[in-house]
C-alpha cells in the first residue's frame, strides 16, 4: 500500500546540487523533516512529480558565529535549537519558542527552514481528500471558491509558524541560496499575505540559513493554543524590547496565527514612553488593526483576537519587568 502520490525522490548531498535540481525541475517540492509536507501529500494536497530531500545537506545544519551575527543553518532541527548553548545564551526567546512547537518527536525531525516555510493552514484545507471533495474543494487547492471569505479572489489560509515572529522581532535576516549565489533579506520579506502563495522564494531558491544580529535588550514569545503540546498557535506574539530607564527605547513586535503571513506590528507610537496602561492600550489597538483573524481555525476569530491582545499584554509586562 502506498499512501503517497508517485514521485521521484532526489537526495542531493550539497546545497549547490540542491539548487541546481530545484532550478531544473518543474514544480519542485522539498522535504526535510517531513512533518509538514508528508502529512499534506498524504492528504492529497499536492502531487509533485519530483521531491527533493534536503535532509542530506550536511553543510546546512551548522550554528556558527560570523562577525557579530549568529548564523543558524536551515536544516538545524528544532530539538537542537531548544538545547544549543549558543542559541540559549544569546537568544533564549528563540530556544523557548522552538520548545513550544508541536511535540518532542516532531522537534527531533522538524527543521528551522521547514518551520519557517511550512504551509498555511485552514479548516477547509487540512482535511482528507473525501472531506474536501464533498465540500467542492477550496481556493487554496483544486477549488474555485474560498469558503472563509466567499467573495474573495485570494486564499485566506493562516500562517501558524512559531519561529517566524520571534526571528522578525529579533531583526533576523534570511539567507537564500540560488544559482548565482546567496541573497539576503529580512525574515518578514520571506512571506506574502496570500494563503496560497505565502512564500516569496522563487522556484529555484532554497532557504539556506538565518542570520541573527546581536540582541540589545530582551525578547520573548507567547503562544495561545488549546493544549500545551502538539497544537499550532491560535495566536502568537513575539516582542523584542530595549528599555532605557523608564522608557521604551526600541521595540519590535510580530504576530503569527492570525493572517496569511507572520506580520510586523507598527509600534512606533509606543517609543519613548513608559510601559503602562496607556501604552498597553496603544499596543492593543495596533495589534487589532494589523491582525485579521478569520474563521480558518476551530477556535473563533473573536476569541483569537482577544487572546492575542491579552497575551501581548502579559508578554510585554514580562519583558518590561526583566528589560
Amino acid at each position: 500500500m502506498n499512501a503517497l502520490p508517485d514521485f521521484r525522490l532526489h537526495r542531493p548531498a550539497t546545497l549547490d546540487e540542491a539548487v541546481r535540481l530545484k532550478a531544473q525541475i518543474e514544480h519542485p517540492a522539498c522535504v526535510a523533516g517531513g512533518s509538514d509536507i508528508l502529512v499534506n501529500l498524504r492528504r492529497g494536497l499536492a502531487k509533485p512529480g519530483d521531491l527533493i530531500d534536503l535532509s542530506g545537506l550536511r553543510d546546512l545544519d551548522a550554528i556558527e558565529r560570523i562577525g557579530d551575527e549568529l548564523w543558524i543553518g536551515a536544516l538545524t532541527t528544532l530539538a537542537r535549537l531548544t538545547r544549543d548553548g549558543a542559541v540559549a545564551a544569546a537568544y533564549p526567546a528563540l530556544a523557548e519558542a522552538a520548545a513550544t512547537v508541536a511535540g518532542p518527536t516532531h522537534r527531533a525531525a522538524a527543521t528551522l527552514g521547514g518551520n519557517l516555510c511550512q504551509d498555511t493552514r485552514c479548516v477547509y484545507y487540512n482535511q482528507s481528500e473525501w472531506w474536501r471533495d464533498g465540500n467542492a474543494y477550496c481556493l487554496k487547492h483544486c477549488g474555485e471558491k474560498c469558503h472563509v471569505v466567499a467573495k474573495s479572489d485570494r486564499c485566506y489560509a493562516t500562517y501558524h509558524g512559531d519561529l517566524a515572529p520571534v526571528l522578525m522581532a529579533l531583526g533576523a535576516s534570511a539567507i537564500v541560496a540560488r544559482a548565482g549565489g546567496l541573497r539576503r533579506l529580512p525574515v518578514e520579506n520571506l512571506f506574502r499575505e496570500d494563503g496560497a502563495h505565502y512564500l516569496t522564494l522563487a522556484p529555484d531558491e532554497i532557504l539556506a540559513a538565518i542570520a541573527l544580529p546581536p540582541l540589545n535588550g530582551r525578547a520573548a514569545y507567547v503562544k495561545g493554543r488549546v493544549r500545551e503540546s502538539v497544537d499550532f498557535p491560535l495566536t502568537g506574539i513575539a516582542a523584542a524590547l530595549k528599555r532605557e530607564g523608564d522608557v521604551i527605547a526600541a521595540l519590535r513586535v510580530a504576530i503569527t496565527g492570525m493572517n496569511s503571513a507572520p506580520l510586523m506590528v507598527d509600534v512606533s507610537k509606543l517609543i519613548g514612553k513608559p510601559w503602562n496602561d496607556e501604552t498597553a492600550t496603544l499596543l492593543s489597538n495596533a495589534l487589532r488593526s494589523r491582525a485579521t483573524a478569520l474563521a480558518t481555525t476551530l477556535a473563533g476569530p473573536k476569541y483569537r483576537r482577544r487572546a492575542m491582545q491579552g497575551l501581548a499584554r502579559r508578554l510585554m509586562d514580562q519583558v518590561w519587568a526583566h528589560g
Binding site: 537526495r11 522535504v31 517531513g34 508528508l38 498524504r42 518527536t105 516532531h106 525531525a109
Partner: peptide
C-alpha cells in the same frame, strides 16, 4: 532519536 514513522520517508533513514 524518536521519530514519527508516518511522516518520514523510508529512504530518509538510508
Amino acid at each position: 532519536e524518536p521519530r514519527l514513522a508516518c511522516s518520514t520517508l523510508a529512504l530518509q533513514v538510508q
